[in-house]
Simulated assay, not measured.
Amino acid sequence: MKKMLAAGVTFCCFLTASMVYAGGLIVAITPSPDNPFFKSEAVGAEAKAKELGYEALLLVHDDDANKQSELFDTAIARGAKAIILDNAGADASIAPIERAKKAGIPTFLIDREINKTDVAIAQIVSNNYQGAKLGGEEFVKLMGEKGNFVELVGKESDTNAGIRSQGYHDVIDQYPDLKMVARQSANWSQTEAYEKMESIIQANPDIQGVICGNDTMAMGAMAALKAAGKGDVIVVGFDGSNDVRDSILAGDIKATVLQPAYRIAEMAVEQADKYLKTGSTGLPEKQLMDCVLINSENASKLETFALK
């Protein structure tokens, strides 16, 4: 009787697992979850996949295109039904996505675009240009339309880095009394932003503002400025992280631009589910999500890349 009961329990568990993951495997590949933005993407994708009846596998490429390519091979070998990807390079990511497509596995891009269409099923990204213009307008206002400023740019191979910088400059460059004294890439890194900012401060002690391509770099820049006794310098970021929310509420960083990372990841899984069931998402490949300015007026409503 005990043997029969044990067998029954095992069979029951097998049935439960089969029912929970009836849709098969969805693989989400993102940059490092050390950055809360990317962690939010992974968590959002995993939660929605499980809600819709899929098994979820979270993989990390660390912005290494070669590692990303290997992870695509893993996804293909595992028989993934779909791949959700925040990619490791607008050009370098095309080949593995094409490889997955040939294997019958559709890819749904989030956050970062690639430089080719009709390869991925969807490219769901924040409207980085619109968001950067919001950030640029707030920066100009905070600076009083004048003063020396620094720009910290994201990873050069990332399309978003260029788009955000362009959006900032299309606003800021209209004000001749705003003078950029330094512009450097800190590769989205807080540590690198701190180090770059230290050197910039030594070479340009008279700065009034720093505009950053993401919140992680803004945090690094703010820390370096405070360490140099320049905590009153205006710093603006981009992403809408909880860390920057707290900094804004503390009166340090002045503003950021929210892009809804968690929701975008959820949308990608929802569209993957619809595509797998019907053969179409019913939507265009490229989809833009508008961003929202976050400052002292609404920062208290921000939680995990979403406004309450």
Rank of each mutant, 00 (worst) to 15 (best):
R245F: 00
I207S: 02
R183M: 11
A228H: 05
V60T: 15
Q208V: 03
Y262C: 01
C12Q: 00
A203P: 05
E113D: 11
D273L: 08
S93A: 15
G144W: 10
M197Y: 08
Q287K: 05
V153P: 03
S247T: 02
G131A: 08
L302N: 00
L293T: 05
K101C: 06
V244M: 08
G144R: 11
A261S: 14
V257I: 05
Q130R: 05
A186N: 09
N127A: 15
K274R: 13
D290N: 14
P260W: 00
G167H: 03
A132C: 10
N66T: 11
A7S: 09
D173K: 14
S185Y: 10
L293R: 04
L142M: 12
E98Y: 04
Q208A: 12
T30W: 03
K301C: 01
Y168P: 11
L58S: 10
L71D: 11
D158A: 15
S185E: 09
K230N: 08
T216V: 08
D73P: 06
I201T: 08
P176D: 14
V9P: 00
P106N: 02
I207V: 10
A182E: 13
E192N: 09
L52M: 11
L109S: 06
A132F: 07
K146G: 03
A250L: 07
C13P: 01
E192R: 12
L15H: 01
E55M: 13
A28K: 00
M267K: 01
L293N: 03
V43L: 12
K102F: 03
V43M: 10
